[in-house]
Structures are given as C-alpha cells and as structure tokens.
Amino acid sequence: MSVADLTGYFNHVVFAILLMLGFYAVIAKGNLIKKLVGLSIFQSAVFLMYISMNKVDGGTAPILQKNVVDQIYSNPLPQVLILTAIVVGVATLSLGLAIVVRIHERYGSIEERELLDAD
C-alpha cells in the first residue's frame, strides 16, 4: 500500500471514526444534551462522507468558468444533498433541544438515570 492509497482513504477512515464517536455518545452518555451532541457528530460524519465522494482529482468547485477549456469540475449532486441537509439538521436538532428543555422543566433533570427513577 502506497502513501497515495493512505491519503486517498484517510477521509473515509475519519468518517468511520467520527460516526462511531457520535454513536458512542448517543448510547453511552446519560445526559440528554450530550446525546444530542453525539447525534450531531454522527450527522456531521455523514456530511463528510458525502462531500468526500464529490471530489474529483484536479477538479474545482462546480461553478462553470467561461473561456476555460477542459476544466474538470467536482460533482455537484452530493453538495446539493448536503447543503439542504445541514439546514434541516439544525432545525431537527433544535426540535430535540426543545423537548429536552421541556423535560427539564417537568422533572428538574436531564440525566437519563434520574428520569427513569422519577417515573
């Protein structure tokens, strides 16, 4: 395996590590806000995977340039999917935070263990 192979797969390796770090926070942490932090790391990891797929060697951002021949452009499709997903991501994250705020007002705690004891 050469150096080029390692750098070529580094994005995917980081994707796998970030995905699993986020997953770990979701399942192992008892604090509801910490779970949401984990969920947003998980989500960012998926964004990174999609954007890594759009890169083409020697390419540039897909904004067409006039009077330039044989310019390679990166793939616009994953970018569009992730662009909208980022905005939807913040909207759904705040929905989760709103539920956490209400749970805190009702039970006075956002620790999973204390919530289970209270019920």
């Binding site: 954007i51 540039t60 913040v90």
Partner: peptide
C-alpha cells in the same frame, strides 16, 4: 478543500453560527 464552496458557506453560517447560539 473538497471543492464544496456552497456547502462550506452553509456549514459556516448554520453550523458554527446559528447552532451554537441555539445550543
């Protein structure tokens, strides 16, 4: 760096800006 200028702009405005304030 991965050629996604539009997405970088969105992530900087939404992720680093609005999400932090809401959090």
């Amino acid at each position: 760096i991965l050629d996604a200028a539009d997405v970088a702009l969105t992530e900087a405005a939404v992720g680093a800006g609005v999400t932090t304030v809401i959090f």
